[in-house]
Amino acid sequence: DTLHVTQDGKHIELRGLSEEEIKLVEELLRRGRKVEEALKIIEELRK
C-alpha cells in the first residue's frame, strides 16, 4: 500500500508498506517522529 505524508512542507509518498506498517508509521508521526526515523524503524522491524 501507499501512504501519503506531508512533512516540513514536503509531500512524501511511501510505497510498498503493509497495512500494519502504515499504521505504525502513522502512529510514529503522530508522536512527533520524522518520516526518515519512522522508515528506519520499519526497516529494522523487517529484518
Rank of each mutant, 00 (worst) to 15 (best):
Q7R: 01
G16M: 03
V35A: 05
L39P: 00
I42G: 00
E20P: 11
V25P: 00
R15I: 13
D8P: 06
K10Y: 14
R30T: 08
K23T: 11
V35L: 12
I41D: 04
Q7W: 02
Q7H: 09
E20S: 13
L39H: 02
E27G: 07
H4F: 05
L17H: 02
E26W: 13
A38M: 07
K10E: 14
I12R: 03
E26G: 11
I41R: 06
V25H: 01
E43W: 08
L3F: 05
G9P: 03
G16E: 08
I42Y: 00
I22P: 00
L17S: 00
D8H: 02
H4C: 07
D8Y: 01
A38R: 00
E44P: 00
V35D: 01
V5E: 06
G32P: 01
E13G: 05
E44A: 09
K23P: 04
L45T: 06
E37A: 07
K40H: 11
E13L: 10
L28D: 01
E44C: 05
L39W: 07
R15P: 09
G16P: 04
A38T: 05
K34N: 12
K47G: 14
Q7D: 10
V25Y: 06
R46C: 02
K40D: 10
K23H: 11
E21I: 02
I41H: 08
D1N: 14
S18K: 07
I41M: 12
V25D: 00
G16T: 03
K23Q: 12
G16Y: 06
H4G: 08
Q7E: 15
A38Q: 00
L39R: 04
E21G: 01
V25G: 01
E36H: 10
K40N: 10
T6P: 06
K10L: 15
T2S: 12
I41C: 05
L17M: 08
E36P: 06
E20R: 10
I12L: 07
K34D: 10
L45S: 04
L17D: 00
I22T: 10
V25T: 04
L17Q: 00
I22Q: 09
R15V: 14
L24G: 02
E37W: 06
G32T: 01
I12H: 14
L39Y: 05
G16S: 05
V35C: 02
L17P: 00
R30A: 11
E26I: 15
L29Q: 03
I22K: 14
K10C: 05
E19C: 07
T6N: 10
V5M: 06
G16I: 03
L14M: 06
V5R: 01
V5Y: 03
R31F: 12
K40P: 01
E19W: 14
G16L: 06
L14Q: 03
L39E: 02
I12P: 08
E20L: 08
E26N: 14
Q7G: 09
I22R: 14
D1M: 11
E37P: 00
V35G: 02
E27W: 12
K23G: 09
I41P: 00
I42R: 00
I42E: 00
R30I: 08
L14A: 03
L39I: 13
S18P: 01
L29M: 11
T6V: 15
R15Y: 14
L28Y: 12
R15S: 13
I41W: 09
G16Q: 06
E43K: 04
A38G: 02
K34S: 14
L39T: 03
H4P: 08
K10S: 13
I41V: 11
D8L: 02
R33I: 15
K10H: 13
V25N: 00
L3C: 12
E36F: 11
E26P: 01
Q7P: 06
Q7V: 11
R31T: 13
G9N: 08
R15H: 14
T6C: 09
I22Y: 09
H11F: 12
K40M: 14
E13Q: 10
E20I: 12
T6M: 15
E27M: 13
L17W: 04
E20Y: 12
L45Q: 09
D8G: 07
L14C: 05
R30M: 11
R46V: 02
K47S: 15
E21D: 03
R46S: 02
L39N: 02
V25L: 12
G32V: 01
K47M: 15
V35N: 02
R46W: 03
E36D: 11
K40S: 12
L28K: 01
E27L: 12
K10T: 13
K23A: 13
R31M: 14
T2R: 06
D1I: 10
R15C: 05
H11N: 11
E19D: 12
V5N: 07
L17R: 00
E37S: 05
E44R: 05
G9T: 03
T6R: 02
L17V: 02
H4S: 10
E43H: 08
E20N: 13
E19S: 15
I12M: 09
R31W: 14
G9Y: 03
G9F: 04
L24S: 03
E20H: 11
E36W: 12
K40R: 13
E20A: 13
R46F: 03
